[in-house]
């Protein structure tokens, strides 16, 4: 792997770390399988790109992308909480709708950012090679997000959100308005994904409606890899695990693609990811089965 490819993998891993953290929020903390991210990621990219072209400050454009993501999350949460549509289906509906919305936002399937200033622009002139500046800046943003989120989740509001996902009945008996916490959590999850989309557009120089496909699986893969390498109960560590998982996942992908002997192409990525996630989901079950049959065999021998 070349140095450029290595830093490229770290950079994209850091961008998707925000998706992983969002997925951790919805899937793990709220126990709400939310596929909206497949739509909110390109939505963030689209909103950010269009605003940059219109000359808006890049930080404001990124904030707007996060807000757009949050709005998408609110739609899914409303469909589920208010109208009792199954969470998976609710999120698929939003995701499908967002495909059209994203086309409307951009006015065409893709937009290139060539001359526009981005959040990275001020850092390019400092004498550090560009391929290192990008992961550095994104890394700082991710670190700030992790710190803020860890603090948020240990607040009274955040604790109530975690209780909502673990035991909603108990949470309600403790006076927690569980509906409000689902709205807030899913909005936050998709805001992070929208922000990831905005960073993707700015680091890669384009926004494209098709970049969203498989976002959820990549996010889940990062969460699962993170949980495997950093099996932590403490929340802050679990968030760090999401980041580490996302980077490791990208490095593994980069390694697989650069090893010519395997013969994988970039277009095989979704297949590889889906297989990885499926295996990761099946493994614990097989392990449990194996340990059960081991513990049963002595008595069977009697």
């Amino acid at each position: 792997m070349t140095e450029i490819a290595l830093f490229g993998a770290i950079e994209i891993g850091l961008v998707y770390a925000l998706v992983a953290i969002g997925v951790y929020l919805s899937f793990r903390i709220l126990d709400f399988p939310d596929l909206t991210v497949d739509g909110s990621f390109p939505l963030g990219a689209a909103v950010c790109a269009v605003l940059l072209i219109a000359g808006v400050n890049p930080w404001l454009a990124s904030l707007a992308a996060a807000l757009a993501g949050a709005a998408a999350g609110l739609v899914t949460a409303t469909l589920n909480v208010r109208f009792k549509i199954l969470h998976l289906l609710a999120s698929i509906l939003t995701m499908i709708a967002l495909f059209s919305v994203n086309l409307r936002v951009m006015g065409r399937p893709n937009v290139a950012l060539l001359m526009q200033d981005t959040v990275l622009t001020p850092f390019y002139g400092l004498g550090i090679p560009d391929h290192i500046v990008r992961p550095l800046v994104v890394g700082v943003i991710v670190a700030v997000v992790v710190l803020l989120l860890a603090r948020f989740l240990s607040s009274e509001f955040g604790l109530a959100m975690r209780a909502t996902g673990v035991n909603a009945r108990m949470a309600r008996a403790q006076g927690v308005n569980t509906d409000a916490h689902v709205y807030a959590g899913i909005a936050l999850s998709n805001a992070l994904t929208g922000l990831a989309g905005a960073l993707f557009a700015q680091t890669n120089g384009f926004a494209d409606v098709t970049t969203g496909i498989g976002t959820i699986v990549v996010g889940l893969a990062a969460v699962i890899v993170g949980e495997t390498v950093l099996p932590a109960r403490a929340l802050a560590l679990a968030l760090v695990g999401c980041v580490a998982g996302s980077i490791l996942y990208r490095l593994a992908v980069q390694l697989a693609l650069s090893a010519d002997s395997i013969g994988l192409q970039a277009s095989d990525l979704n297949l590889v990811t889906a297989v990885l996630v499926a295996v990761a989901l099946i493994l614990p079950r097989l392990k449990a089965k194996a340990s059960r049959s081991v513990s049963r065999s002595p008595s069977a021998a009697k």
Partner: peptide, 14 residues
């Protein structure tokens, strides 16, 4: 969680 029962839950440390 129980200690905050019936109160508004803010962003202060739990």
């Amino acid at each position: 969680l129980a200690a905050a029962r019936g109160r508004r839950r803010g962003l202060g440390l739990a």
